[in-house]
Protein backbone atom coordinates (compact mmCIF):
# COMPACT_ATOMS: atom_id res chain seq x y z
CA UNK A 1 0.00 0.00 0.00
CA UNK A 2 2.79 2.41 0.95
CA UNK A 3 6.39 2.27 2.14
CA UNK A 4 5.59 1.89 5.84
CA UNK A 5 3.00 -0.84 5.31
CA UNK A 6 3.81 -2.79 2.14
CA UNK A 7 1.40 -5.50 3.31
CA UNK A 8 -1.14 -4.14 5.80
CA UNK A 9 -2.97 -7.44 6.23
CA UNK A 10 0.27 -9.28 6.96
CA UNK A 11 1.23 -6.59 9.48
CA UNK A 12 -2.08 -6.98 11.25
CA UNK A 13 -1.81 -10.79 11.23
CA UNK A 14 1.69 -10.73 12.74
CA UNK A 15 0.57 -8.24 15.40
CA UNK A 16 -2.38 -10.42 16.42
CA UNK A 17 -0.21 -13.55 16.27
CA UNK A 18 2.30 -12.03 18.68
CA UNK A 19 -0.38 -10.98 21.17
CA UNK A 20 -2.14 -14.35 21.06
CA UNK A 21 1.16 -16.20 21.40
CA UNK A 22 1.99 -14.23 24.53
CA UNK A 23 -1.59 -14.17 25.87
CA UNK A 24 -1.08 -10.57 26.90
CA UNK A 25 -2.01 -7.03 25.89
CA UNK A 26 0.53 -5.36 28.16
CA UNK A 27 2.15 -2.17 26.75
CA UNK A 28 5.45 -4.01 26.25
CA UNK A 29 3.87 -6.75 24.19
CA UNK A 30 1.79 -4.25 22.21
CA UNK A 31 5.03 -2.45 21.34
CA UNK A 32 6.89 -5.64 20.41
CA UNK A 33 3.93 -6.86 18.34
CA UNK A 34 3.72 -3.54 16.52
CA UNK A 35 7.47 -3.63 15.85
CA UNK A 36 7.15 -7.15 14.43
CA UNK A 37 4.12 -6.19 12.35
CA UNK A 38 5.82 -3.15 10.87
CA UNK A 39 9.39 -4.43 10.46
CA UNK A 40 8.83 -7.96 9.16
CA UNK A 41 6.86 -6.96 5.99
CA UNK A 42 9.30 -4.10 5.28
CA UNK A 43 12.30 -6.42 5.55
CA UNK A 44 10.55 -9.16 3.55
CA UNK A 45 9.34 -6.82 0.80
CA UNK A 46 12.40 -7.35 -1.45
CA UNK A 47 11.71 -11.11 -1.36
CA UNK A 48 8.15 -10.71 -2.63
CA UNK A 49 8.28 -9.37 -6.16
CA UNK A 50 4.49 -9.49 -6.63
CA UNK A 51 1.81 -8.06 -4.41
CA UNK A 52 -1.28 -10.05 -3.68
CA UNK A 53 -4.60 -8.35 -4.21
CA UNK A 54 -7.18 -9.95 -1.97
CA UNK A 55 -10.86 -9.17 -2.42
CA UNK A 56 -14.22 -10.57 -1.40
CA UNK A 57 -13.87 -11.33 2.36
CA UNK A 58 -17.22 -13.14 2.25
CA UNK A 59 -15.95 -15.56 -0.39
CA UNK A 60 -12.82 -16.12 1.73
CA UNK A 61 -14.89 -16.93 4.80
CA UNK A 62 -17.09 -19.33 2.82
CA UNK A 63 -14.03 -21.01 1.27
CA UNK A 64 -12.39 -21.50 4.68
CA UNK A 65 -15.58 -23.06 6.02
CA UNK A 66 -15.85 -25.29 2.97
CA UNK A 67 -12.21 -26.43 3.30
CA UNK A 68 -12.72 -27.16 7.00
CA UNK A 69 -15.73 -29.32 6.20
CA UNK A 70 -13.90 -31.10 3.37
CA UNK A 71 -10.93 -31.80 5.66
CA UNK A 72 -13.22 -33.55 8.15
CA UNK A 73 -15.05 -35.53 5.44
CA UNK A 74 -11.89 -36.62 3.65
CA UNK A 75 -10.29 -37.52 6.98
CA UNK A 76 -13.08 -40.03 7.48
CA UNK A 77 -12.73 -41.30 3.91
CA UNK A 78 -8.95 -41.75 4.10
CA UNK A 79 -9.21 -43.38 7.55
CA UNK A 80 -11.77 -45.83 6.15
CA UNK A 81 -9.57 -46.43 3.11
CA UNK A 82 -6.56 -47.19 5.32
CA UNK A 83 -8.43 -49.55 7.64
CA UNK A 84 -9.86 -51.67 4.83
CA UNK A 85 -6.86 -51.39 2.52
CA UNK A 86 -6.20 -55.13 2.56
CA UNK A 87 -9.68 -56.10 1.37
CA UNK A 88 -10.39 -53.03 -0.81
CA UNK A 89 -7.13 -51.49 -2.03
CA UNK A 90 -7.60 -47.73 -2.52
CA UNK A 91 -7.91 -46.71 -6.20
CA UNK A 92 -5.06 -44.23 -6.13
CA UNK A 93 -4.42 -42.33 -9.31
CA UNK A 94 -2.81 -39.26 -10.77
CA UNK A 95 -5.30 -36.78 -12.20
CA UNK A 96 -4.57 -34.07 -14.75
CA UNK A 97 -6.65 -30.99 -13.99
CA UNK A 98 -6.86 -28.16 -16.53
CA UNK A 99 -6.55 -24.88 -14.62
CA UNK A 100 -8.03 -21.47 -15.38
CA UNK A 101 -6.51 -19.85 -12.29
CA UNK A 102 -3.25 -18.06 -13.18
CA UNK A 103 -2.51 -15.76 -10.22
CA UNK A 104 0.61 -16.95 -8.36
CA UNK A 105 -0.86 -16.26 -4.91
CA UNK A 106 -4.10 -17.99 -5.84
CA UNK A 107 -2.14 -21.03 -7.00
CA UNK A 108 -0.15 -21.01 -3.77
CA UNK A 109 -3.40 -20.99 -1.82
CA UNK A 110 -4.74 -23.80 -4.01
CA UNK A 111 -1.64 -25.91 -3.38
CA UNK A 112 -2.07 -25.35 0.35
CA UNK A 113 -5.71 -26.37 0.25
CA UNK A 114 -5.12 -29.53 -1.80
CA UNK A 115 -2.27 -30.61 0.45
CA UNK A 116 -4.02 -29.84 3.74
CA UNK A 117 -7.08 -31.85 2.69
CA UNK A 118 -6.10 -35.51 3.17
CA UNK A 119 -6.58 -37.64 0.09
CA UNK A 120 -5.10 -35.20 -2.42
CA UNK A 121 -1.47 -34.18 -2.89
CA UNK A 122 -0.36 -31.44 -5.27
CA UNK A 123 2.32 -33.09 -7.41
CA UNK A 124 3.21 -30.91 -10.36
CA UNK A 125 2.24 -27.67 -12.09
CA UNK A 126 2.95 -26.99 -15.75
CA UNK A 127 5.34 -24.10 -16.42
CA UNK A 128 2.56 -22.14 -18.14
CA UNK A 129 0.22 -22.91 -15.17
CA UNK A 130 -2.36 -24.53 -17.43
CA UNK A 131 -2.29 -28.08 -16.06
CA UNK A 132 -2.06 -29.42 -12.54
CA UNK A 133 -1.00 -32.98 -11.73
CA UNK A 134 -2.71 -34.16 -8.56
CA UNK A 135 -2.36 -37.47 -6.75
CA UNK A 136 -5.67 -38.70 -5.37
CA UNK A 137 -5.84 -41.38 -2.67
CA UNK A 138 -9.10 -43.01 -3.71
CA UNK A 139 -10.51 -41.89 -7.05
CA UNK A 140 -14.04 -42.88 -7.98
CA UNK A 141 -15.09 -40.82 -11.00
CA UNK A 142 -12.37 -38.72 -12.62
CA UNK A 143 -14.66 -36.31 -14.49
CA UNK A 144 -16.81 -35.70 -11.40
CA UNK A 145 -13.71 -35.18 -9.27
CA UNK A 146 -12.30 -32.57 -11.68
CA UNK A 147 -15.66 -30.78 -11.83
CA UNK A 148 -15.94 -30.75 -8.02
CA UNK A 149 -12.35 -29.53 -7.65
CA UNK A 150 -12.78 -26.66 -10.09
CA UNK A 151 -16.15 -25.65 -8.66
CA UNK A 152 -15.33 -25.75 -4.92
CA UNK A 153 -11.74 -24.52 -4.84
CA UNK A 154 -10.63 -22.94 -8.09
CA UNK A 155 -13.62 -20.68 -8.73
CA UNK A 156 -13.66 -18.99 -5.27
CA UNK A 157 -9.88 -18.48 -5.49
CA UNK A 158 -10.28 -16.80 -8.87
CA UNK A 159 -12.88 -14.48 -7.35
CA UNK A 160 -10.56 -13.65 -4.45
CA UNK A 161 -7.27 -13.16 -6.26
CA UNK A 162 -8.11 -12.16 -9.84
Amino acid sequence: MNRLFPAPLLSLALFVLWLVLNLSVSPGNLLLGAALGILAPVLMAPLRPQHAHIRRPLVIARLIGRVGLDVILSNLQVARGVLRASSHPPRSAFVHIPLSLRDAHGLAALSMITTVVPGTVWSELAVDRSILLLHVFDLDDEAAFIEHFKHTYERPLMEIFE
Binding site: V71, N75, V78, A79, V82, A85, S86, P90, S92, F94, T115, V116, V117, P118, G119, V121, S123, H135, F137
Partner: peptide, 20 residues
Amino acid sequence: GLVRLKDYFQRMHPPALAST
Protein backbone atom coordinates in the same frame (compact mmCIF):
# COMPACT_ATOMS: atom_id res chain seq x y z
CA GLY B 1 -1.60 -46.30 6.94
CA LEU B 2 2.01 -45.19 6.75
CA VAL B 3 3.12 -48.70 7.76
CA ARG B 4 0.65 -50.79 5.80
CA LEU B 5 0.25 -49.08 2.44
CA LYS B 6 2.73 -50.17 -0.22
CA ASP B 7 2.91 -47.37 -2.78
CA TYR B 8 4.98 -44.28 -1.95
CA PHE B 9 2.35 -41.82 -3.20
CA GLN B 10 -0.40 -43.63 -1.31
CA ARG B 11 1.66 -43.31 1.84
CA MET B 12 1.76 -39.53 1.45
CA HIS B 13 -1.94 -39.29 2.39
CA PRO B 14 -2.41 -40.94 5.83
CA PRO B 15 0.00 -38.66 7.79
CA ALA B 16 -2.32 -35.78 6.84
CA LEU B 17 -4.82 -37.28 9.30
CA ALA B 18 -2.46 -36.49 12.19
CA SER B 19 -1.67 -32.99 10.95
CA THR B 20 -5.29 -32.04 10.36
